[in-house]
């Protein structure tokens, strides 16, 4: 039975297997990195944090042992020009609400890559929260989401 379940789980696309991590009143949902083109030195990562607690928390930093530098950034397109800036004060997670790296152009930026990150890989990282402290998580590397690109195919 266990083998059957494992086999079934393996058949599911990774995006369906929403993986999550818990730390006190925080739930970290589905940290993922988008597969990189060969030669790219940066990768974008996304995640959602649900805060069921009474007080606000804040994601201050992301660290990884496999990728030397991780920053949190926001890309904006204003007046037709794409710009990027660091999230200087991290990502606030209001009490009773959720916040995502992925909203409004925000993303985790994995930098100084020495090789291509391919779908199926798992990248270990630690999320440093102001109150919840250090939380180990795993970012799943996934194929570029076709949502934006292939939306019309489902009509």
């Amino acid at each position: 039975m266990r083998i059957l379940i494992t086999a079934l789980l393996l058949l599911l696309p990774t995006s369906v297997l929403a993986h999550e991590f818990k730390a006190g009143s925080l739930l970290i949902d589905h940290p993922k990195i988008v597969e990189t083109p060969p030669g790219a030195k940066v990768a974008a990562g996304y995640l959602t944090v649900v805060n069921s607690g009474e007080g606000e928390d804040r994601l201050l930093a992301i660290e990884s042992t496999t990728i030397s530098r991780v920053e949190m950034h926001a890309s904006t397109i204003t007046d037709g020009v794409a710009r990027m800036k660091q999230l200087e004060s991290g990502l606030p997670i209001p009490a009773g609400k959720s916040a995502s790296l992925g909203d409004e152009g925000t993303h985790a930026m994995f930098m100084d890559l020495t090789r291509q990150l391919k779908a199926g890989e798992k990248i270990e990282a630690v999320l440093a929260f102001e109150k919840a402290g250090r939380v180990p998580v795993v970012f799943n590397v996934e194929k570029r989401s076709a949502q934006k690109v292939e939306r019309h195919e489902h009509q």
Binding site: V42, S75, A82, V149
Partner: peptide, 19 residues
């Protein structure tokens, strides 16, 4: 017009053009 050290806007645009 873009650059490869660009994590989201550029690869998204190229993926869309490939599509």
């Amino acid at each position: 017009y873009g650059f490869t050290h660009c994590p989201d806007v550029c690869p998204t645009a190229l993926a869309e053009m490939a599509q």
